[in-house]
Design a protein around this nucleic acid. Structure first.
Lengths: 179, 179
DNA sequence: TAAAGCATGTAATCCGTTACATGATTTA
DNA sequence: TAAATCATGTAACGGATTACATGCTTTA
């Protein structure tokens, strides 16, 4: 007989935590920082969501908890079941696409503004995108990936660069439409 | 004295409804279809969310409700206060950027897979992006915008095309990194 | 010794999807 | 007359942010 209780489905956040723990064991605090740092442009999550989710993953046997250290710190380690769950998620399921792009939504209503206001809106978007390009390119130029993790990280960064370039060019083009 | 009750802040969905109603008066059913059609790639919302939000906007005096017609149909019209709210939103506030890109999140964990599996993942993303390009370009080529609303719609579509192109090229490049 | 940072957790609230529930009107 | 579509609403549940709450450890 199996020791596995009936399947609770794992959320996207749960899979993100499994993915991060696949790199190395970490505490909830460490994981929270990962979302604020490496994953800042990829996925957002706060500790109020992370701690309860870690408890659920542990209950489900996808991760294990070490004994509490200094300041109550608890280190979580991915279990074999967790690695399997992560792998199935990546290879057997497809990401949902429920769009929620607020900048794009706003652009849809630009026609309700004066041409000058609409232009200002798109110029601001272009400016923000150009700032992103600079930020990302600075990170990329100081980054020679060596480990597989770093290669994946560099690939995600490349997406940021290319999407930001496309966004900047689009916003400049859009601003022109209101001239 | 003012007839306005104390300010409840309007959600993004509320602003989207105001934006749609700025075009023409519509029922909740019509608005739901707008999200399924014109806004399909921009913002998602279902009727379970839309009906209560319309009730709130009406309570706040941002829209007005006509008397119920056939099948209980209720047509909502944007009020002056609603137009002001929409305008303030577009000109005085900035869109938040809380990233939730599941495809990008997954790419971040591609290193946990075999190179073949990782490549398959990115090739699939490239395929999906190329399909989007075809879909969007077909719409664009059959579309000669005349009204200001259609111009804005064409601008949003152009974003879809350019982002899809950048995504396809990125995914092809990413697949190469695992060769 | 005070401030900054490490560290965990819960509660209130809101946003969003899916399912439940109902009924009228049009069209084949 | 049956099916499709129009049309509205609520309830249950889960996802996500912010605020509340607490306390230890390191560093200036």
């Amino acid at each position: 007989m199996s020791s596995k209780s009936y399947q609770r489905s794992v959320s996207v956040l749960g899979h993100a935590l499994l993915g991060l723990l696949a790199g190395r064991p970490m505490s909830g605090y460490d994981l929270t920082r990962q979302f604020d740092e490496s994953l800042r442009h990829v996925w957002s999550a706060t500790h109020g969501q992370i701690y309860p989710e870690l408890a659920r993953l542990a209950t489900d046997g996808l991760i294990t908890v070490g004994t509490a250290g200094a300041r109550g710190r608890k280190v979580y380690t991915i279990a074999d079941a967790g690695r399997n769950e992560l792998r199935d998620w990546l290879t057997q399921t497809h990401p949902e696409n429920r769009p929620h792009s607020e900048p794009l939504l706003r652009s849809f209503f630009a026609w309700t503004l004066s041409p000058q206001e609409a232009r200002a809106y798109f110029e601001r978007r272009a400016h923000i995108a150009r700032q992103s390009i600079i930020e990302y390119e600075a990170i990329a130029s100081a980054f020679a990936p060596s480990t597989p993790e770093e290669v994946a990280s560099r690939i995600a960064l490349e997406s940021g660069i290319r999407i930001a370039r496309a966004s900047a060019e689009w916003a400049e083009w859009a601003a022109e439409q209101y001239r």
